[in-house]
Design a protein around this nucleic acid. Structure first.
Lengths: 348, 348
DNA sequence: CGTGGAAATGAAAGCGCTTTCAAAGCCGAA
DNA sequence: TTCGGCTTTGAAAGCGCTTTCATTTCCACG
């Protein structure tokens, strides 16, 4: 009850007074449709119009006992990866009549607190990748807010959706091996995220199956600059192929190779992951993932969980899903292009 | 008051009972710090812990008379443009202690209603580009919710932030003219958005200043495919240069030109707008915009407006700001590259 | 005209929290 | 021991809305 001068926007009471009815009638006129006379509804509408009344959703939500909003937590929004997921999530949520609250953790120290706070503002929450630890996830789950983890290691009793990493990485590795590449380096940190671990595992397993040693590993952050740096280091003794954790890194490695006078794919092959737009123009072999669908699925699962929760407290078994990913072969791995062959290659 | 079986998450009442104090004390223990004995606070904390209590933000916000949340409305999130703006907005808002609600209108019919609804859930709202009409903007403004328009034509009495279009487009045109290009086509729809109108205007003005006719105009949507289509049409009688509304379209035109056996920039120049990552790898001349800053500025302005509003109802004069943009010359316009010369050009 | 039942409306009780105001508890000084 | 003044706590009034339940109104029919 701040004693500040009130910039009051109209409330339901003023509308009621203005229309000469009770607040109950205003409420009904604004929703129930068929419980109110047409003439009354008209009066209410006129009052609403006259006062520029917009219902305060806080009051409404509190009375209804639901936020009518979902949250999503992601590390960042640079690059299309998370943006697409968020978009798919928003689209699905909004069709289900829920607003979407976003929270980007960046590298914030207080991320855990921010996520906990967010959990108190929503009916359901999606948590992506490297944002908060398992403890926080468990805390949220304990509050009873339905939760879905995305592209993140599962936590007991919590729903999880991921994209396929290991198998497609194995496919990619097989492809590279089939083209004669033997010395392959992985750029990325298998320790950092389970997605990365899966990609490395797929690569390593396939190489072992071919009697080759475990591939080298160069941890780094996931942007173009990091790729350029690692790429430059690698150029001292170039491997046959560089398998990168994502497209940004791969593009960086690509740049570094060219800068060192090495030609991709002639001198070495480079591959990425995510299939960003730039990958297409750089002719980068990569893996495309159903990111939009990842987000949309999360929103729908949450909706289901929220409904269950309202219906009864019997805790269902956690769901798991792995969405398929697809290898996109372009010229950067030195093989028969299957898509947009050499799009801008003629450019001098 | 749904009569459904309650999946109740703990309320302040239970915490109070569990700790043997009143709800007022619990509330204070959780915030005011210095109005509560240390021992009492400890008891409350223990109860909170034991019950996995998370304050319901609805109740809190309703009591405080603020949502502690801001909204942002944008058409889409594909491509880095809006994503970056949203990110900047989120970052700034979150520093100011506000959550962020997003709303993507896509091409939705009911966008206006959705935006109005959103307006009732936030303390301040940013509205970007082609999402809702002036009428809706005025309705929102009338409800008293602080509002900022982004990259959108101004509306009376409402704050607006834009990026510079006309002047930088003129610069771009001058650059092209200086390199001998005379017949220039604009791909984009000046009618569709004020940003586009500005870009076209800058181009047209400069050409007129050089005694050249008003450039042709090819309206289209703003994705790679549309660019390819228009590009293919243009290849029947290629102009000297194609100035595109954004990078995606320019990349499409680029592809179409190559597909038709024309070389960029030798046979024709192509330019874009936005400086997406792919532009760098396609060697595309473009214009970079401070998108993050656009979003961050909006968040900060809103915070200011919200504070003013709380302080008193005297309506300040609307603010306007135009953020500078920067021409990024690469090889696609046939001129002296100033950045990443021909990054992957050597690739066969 | 009177009556019963359906339809429309209003009164009031919350939803979970913050905050004011008053009461209670505590301390040292008299 | 008692009293004044400060600190800590509790009771209760909202915040803006929905919804139950009771009341009123309106008709068609007898």
């Amino acid at each position: 009850m701040k004693a500040l001068s009130k910039p009051k926007t109209a409330t339901i009471y003023e509308v009621a007074r203005h229309a000469g009815v009770s607040i109950a009638t205003v409420s009904r006129a604004l929703r129930d449709s068929d419980l109110v006379t047409e003439s009354t509804r008209a009066r209410v509408r006129a009052a609403v119009e006259a006062l520029s009344y917009t219902p305060n959703q806080l009051g409404r939500s509190l009375a209804e006992g639901r936020h009518a909003a979902n949250g999503i937590v992601f590390p960042d929004l640079t690059g299309p990866y998370y943006a697409e997921v968020v978009l798919g999530y928003e689209e699905a949520a909004s069709e289900l009549g829920r607003s979407v609250l976003i929270l980007a953790t960046h590298g914030r120290r207080d991320a855990e607190a921010a996520v906990l706070d967010l959990a108190g503002r929503v009916d359901g929450l999606a948590v992506m990748g490297n944002t908060v630890g398992d403890d926080t996830v468990r805390s949220i789950a304990a509050t009873g807010v339905p939760l879905v983890l995305l592209a993140r290691p599962p936590v007991d009793g919590v729903d999880t959706i991921r994209t396929r990493n290991e198998r497609t990485a194995a496919e990619l590795a097989a492809h590279l091996l089939a083209h004669g590449h033997r010395r392959i380096v992985f750029v990325g940190d298998p320790e950092a995220a389970p997605d990365m671990a899966g990609r490395y595992a797929g690569l390593a397993k396939t190489m072992r199956a071919h009697g080759l040693p475990r591939p080298d590993c160069r941890p780094c952050s996931y942007d173009v600059e990091a790729g350029e740096r690692i790429g430059a280091e690698l150029m001292a003794d170039p491997p046959d192929a560089v398998v990168c954790a994502n497209d940004e890194v791969a593009l960086g490695v690509h740049l570094a190779a060219e800068a060192a006078g090495r030609s991709v794919p002639h001198d070495l092959a480079v591959t990425g992951w995510d299939d960003v737009l730039a990958a297409r123009f750089a002719g980068l072999t990569t893996v495309s993932q159903p990111m939009r669908e990842l987000g949309a699925t999360a929103a729908r699962w949450l909706d289901g969980r929220i409904a269950e929760r309202t219906a009864g407290p019997e805790r269902a078994t956690p769901r798991r899903r792995v969405l398929p990913t697809q290898l996109v072969v372009r010229r950067s791995c030195g093989s028969h292009p299957v898509e947009t062959p050499n799009p801008l290659g003629g450019t001098a």
